[in-house]
Design a protein around this nucleic acid. Sequence first.
DNA 1: CGCGCGATTGTA
DNA 2: ACAATCGCGCGT
Length: 168
Amino acid sequence: MERLSLSFFSRHTVEVAKGLIGKTLVFGKYQGIIWETEAYRGLDDEASHAFRKTPRSSIMFGRAGMSYVYFIYGKYHCLNIVSEQDGEPGAVLIRGIKLIKPSLLLNGPGKLCQTLGITKLHNGLDLLSHEDFYVMEGQENASVYQATPRIGIRKAVDKHWRFVAALS
DNA sequence: CGCGCGATTGTA
DNA sequence: ACAATCGCGCGT
């Protein structure tokens, strides 16, 4: 299967978030079908870390296809993939994947990173060229069935930028 | 340098 | 409905 390239990730973040549903995340020995995503943008998105440019969020302003991993609530890590043209902020939060072998649904960004062992050490890696951390084509039958407000935020609840795959 | 709070989760 | 837990971001 073919690895997703720069042209896939360097689009509007909402399109990337939808497009990632059904794709295959590869991280070391793990492989999983991406089940749930959320789009986060810049100045037009009050709920995004990139609403303001800070040291932490600066990666979101860089070239698409890079990993953005942040630490939250003193306990959990969350995995994002940078989107948009270089210079434009955006990233897609990976909220859920369906692990292949062992078959296991990882719902929730914290649990996902905990299970796979993703930490801040994996922040700023290039998924376009990394040896065993990337996204490739997958089961395209997993089509988007629902768009909802994003989870765990109080701002910009009018933006329905959370996407969940259909059952299968 | 101090302080409030969060793109979460498990438990009550 | 809420506590746990600590790094980030902003104000002083």
